[in-house]
């Protein structure tokens, strides 16, 4: 999440001006491509899929830039699009390949276990696998809180869930991860 609200305000103003919109959007992509990429990547694991989804995210944002009124944070708007893209992708993959949620979870785990794009140590790999076993919503909440250190209020705006429910979801996620480590010692 952006920690530069003043710069975001300036960017938002330029995005809403047709004469400067394109130039400002290039800055948006330069600033947000990395955090959005990691958010997507932690959901789909594959770099190629994350790359495609990131492109879709920015394309959709650009094609509907006039709908961004500046009422919400620029980052919130972009995260919403990115997460919708990632969840839609996982859903369509399940349908296309007639997979259950459990099947897909198993595939993500095997992707992490064998991926050449994974360069962490054993603890990092095990943590990723434990996170992959979480339900989608809990995984999203956990990623945003633990890896991106987002505030619950920001996560609430992105996911449209109450802060209380998010805290409960994060707590459950941490318990499940600890349980996974206990069971896979």
């Amino acid at each position: 999440m952006s920690n530069r609200p003043e710069e975001d305000q300036n960017l938002t103003a330029r995005l809403r001006d047709g004469a400067t919109a394109r130039e400002a959007f290039n800055e948006v992509m330069a600033r947000y491509s990395e955090p959005l990429y990691w958010q997507i990547r932690r959901m789909v694991q594959s770099h190629d899929d994350a790359n495609d989804l990131l492109q879709n995210t920015f394309m959709k944002a650009w094609m509907s830039i006039e709908n961004f009124r500046g009422d919400a944070k620029l980052s919130t708007w972009l995260y919403k699009i990115a997460i919708n893209e990632a969840l839609s992708f996982l859903d369509s993959e399940r349908r296309r390949r007639h997979m259950s949620l459990d099947d897909q979870e198993a595939e993500i785990v095997s992707t992490i276990a064998a991926s050449p794009d994974f360069d962490g140590n054993e603890l990092a790999r095990k943590l990723q696998i434990a996170i992959a076993t979480l339900p989608e919503k809990q995984r999203l909440v956990f990623n945003m809180k633990y890896f991106d250190d987002m505030k619950y209020e920001d996560i609430s705006n992105i996911l449209g869930t109450s802060v209380g429910a998010l805290k409960a979801s994060y707590h459950l996620a941490t318990k499940k991860i600890e349980q996974y480590f206990d069971e896979h010692d």
Partner: peptide, 26 residues
């Protein structure tokens, strides 16, 4: 390991190139 990119890697210069490529594709 509590970093967004912990344990994962991307091709070198990926993000810089991504923004450049994307700006020409819009």
């Amino acid at each position: 390991l509590a970093r967004p990119d912990a344990g994962m890697k991307v091709p070198a210069g990926y993000f810089e190139q991504f923004a450049l490529d994307m700006s020409t594709r819009l």
